[in-house]
Nucleic acid binder design. Structure first.
Length: 529
RNA sequence: GCCCCCGUAGCUCAGUGGAUAGAGCACAGGUCUCCGGAACCUGGGGCGCAAGUUCGAUUCUUGCCGGGGGCACCA
């Protein structure tokens, strides 16, 4: 695929390099806020000035004079402190549209030189309750990141790690049994709605042991969790049990490996991993003095297991309350002889409910299902990733329901439906998008829209690289807005066949790109609303 | 005390070195003979404070102020 931006910057880079005695110069093109400043502009002359010890203005003029016109430029001018402003010819716009049209729904997809095998661990909530909106944020964010890196050309697996044995799980089983007996959950148990719901569905003797109740309750709880994730359109590839790490001997093997590397020692009756030398705050206990392995022991076994499966990049999607784990996970990887940078932990900030921290004890837990019931899956997924993961998020269900129609997801979906509608109508009249060969000189609204389309490959790439799906959301809003203006001001189904063909092709590209981008955040792109 | 995130318009937020800082909501007022009005247009208003780096800082560095989250031989 030709990069239409690179095609514009290459001649400038060539001219700049010639002035700089052959030193390669990185030319970044930006879209000026002011239309008077051209279609694209570059400040390369300003950045070159200190090195060349000349005024930016004269450098810009030299660059402008040396650019060989390949037919893309309708005008090159020097302005301001030394900006080089480019005005583009219809030729460039035609090629840009032809490029996007040829790629279709694969427009913006990547083919990286270094293809990675990425494991995205997401949600990983233990089966002691329904998926909350906090876990929904984890899942929506993690799944969007997974889709983005896959679109960028990498291999990706989504994995859910859980612990289905131990004290917490037993308390859950005991809570279910208590509900069945018409009693209150035990101290430290689970007072929420889930144990009651499960109690009525299970055919287990009320006098049976807690172990029996737990064994029966956990699969049912998982069924609820899987159903919620399915509603959220999150496809988990692998469900990984912590218990398996212990029973398979993986914990012992990982410990032995770290010990062989000289990073394990005994102190105060416990077994420690020397993580502090690799950036952790302090060393961590693997085997407690009572002989029981810690959760962290399973963690290092799990890291080893993931690498052993061939993944070269491990993503842990964790909430801000787990940020303290980052250093120890990376240090653990180092202790096992792996590159700590291969362990990557994108942290999303906390989710509050009507301004308050969510908690079972507070009794203000909002589940993913409640959110979906209130506003629908599309609005929910859009909402959960529209803000940066570095931003805290508040959920107010009443407000969400009241303002449901204002969710920007509909603005974007409407643009998609509108584009499809126009294409349907054109098809009925026997016309449609074409591959190229247009003569039409695009109007301002068309140029803005095409330039927006040209941004998409870079937006998709950066969103994937930075694990930042909210950039896709921001882009979608802009693309939809540009398309609505284009549609409002200009007639797509124009009488002139050439104009019509060009605009229909652009409309097709917009529809495909909106569809692709929405899919990356797990939102459907309807043909009609 | 140490670590992470945030502070941009009345509200919720985009914007990781460029020219006059954007969007949605809210508020005020406009646009329909026409491809989908869930649309479009106009208006008011903003980078927490202070130094530093730079030709240029909302963006990078440091300090301070304010808010949130962490600092287990818990899971």
């Amino acid at each position: 695929m030709t990069d239409l931006i690179a095609r514009l910057s290459a001649p400038i880079a060539g001219a700049a390099a010639a002035l700089a005695d052959g030193v390669p110069v990185d030319v970044a093109l930006e879209r000026p806020a002011d239309a008077e400043h051209g279609d694209y502009a570059t400040s390369v002359a300003l950045r070159l000035a200190p090195m060349l010890r000349r005024s930016p203005r004269s450098i810009a003029e030299d660059i402008a004079a040396r650019i060989s016109d390949g037919g893309d430029y309708a005008g090159v001018e020097v302005a301001g402190a030394g900006f080089v402003n480019l005005h583009l010819s219809p030729h460039w716009y035609h090629d840009a549209v032809a490029e996007a049209a040829a790629a279709g729904t694969r427009y913006g997809a990547g083919a990286p030189a270094a293809r990675r095998n990425i494991l995205v661990e997401l949600v990983s909530a233990n089966p002691t309750g329904d998926i909350t909106v906090a876990s929904a944020r984890n899942g929506a964010y993690g799944d969007a990141v997974a889709r983005l890196v896959a679109f960028a050309g990498h291999d990706v697996v989504r994995e859910y790690y859980f612990n289905d044995q131990g004290g917490q799980i037993d308390k859950f089983g005991a809570s279910v049994r208590a509900r069945r007996r018409g009693e209150e959950p035990p101290e430290g148990g689970y007072p929420g709605a889930e144990p009651s719901a499960l109690a009525t569905q299970l055919d287990v003797d009320p006098d049976a042991s807690v172990e029996e109740w737990t064994a029966a309750a956990v699969p049912l709880m998982f069924a609820r969790i899987k159903a919620s994730l399915a509603r959220l359109r999150i496809d988990v590839d692998i469900w990984f049990s912590e218990r398996e790490l212990h029973s398979s001997g993986a914990v012992d093997r990982a410990l032995a490996r770290a010990r062989a590397a000289g990073h394990v020692y005994d102190r105060d009756g416990a077994t420690w991993l020397a993580t502090a030398q690799f950036g952790d705050d302090k060393d961590r206990v693997l085997i407690k003095a009572d002989g029981v392995p810690t959760y962290f022991a399973a963690d290092i076994a799990y890291i080893e297991h993931k690498f052993a499966r061939g993944h070269d990049r491990l993503l842990y999607i964790l909430g801000a309350d787990h940020h303290g784990y980052v250093a120890r996970l990376q240090a653990a990887a180092a202790c096992l002889g792996h590159d700590p940078a291969a362990v990557e932990v994108p942290i999303y900030q906390m989710v509050t409910v009507s301004g308050e921290r969510m908690g079972k004890r507070r009794g203000n837990v909002v589940t993913a299902d409640e959110l979906i019931d209130a506003i629908g899956v599309d609005a929910a997924r859009f909402f959960l990733v529209q803000r940066s993961h570095d931003q805290t998020m508040d959920i107010d269900l009443d407000l969400a329901v009241r303002t449901e129609r204002e969710n920007p997801v509909y603005y974007v979906q409407y643009a998609h439906a509108r584009a499809r509608s126009i294409l349907r109508r054109a098809a009925e009249e026997g016309t449609g998008p074409t591959a190229g060969g247009w003569a039409h000189a695009p109007e301002r609204q068309e140029r803005e829209l095409v330039k927006r389309l040209v941004e998409w490959p870079q937006v998709a790439r950066e969103a994937a690289d930075r694990r930042a799906p909210h950039r896709v959301v921001a882009y979608l809003s802009q693309l939809a807005a540009d398309f609505h203006v284009f549609h409002h001001d200009l007639r797509v189904l124009h009488d002139d066949a050439d104009v019509r063909a060009f605009r229909l092709t652009v409309t097709g590209c917009v529809g495909d790109t909106i569809g692709t981008a929405l899919d990356l955040i797990g939102v459907e792109a309807p043909d009609a609303m």
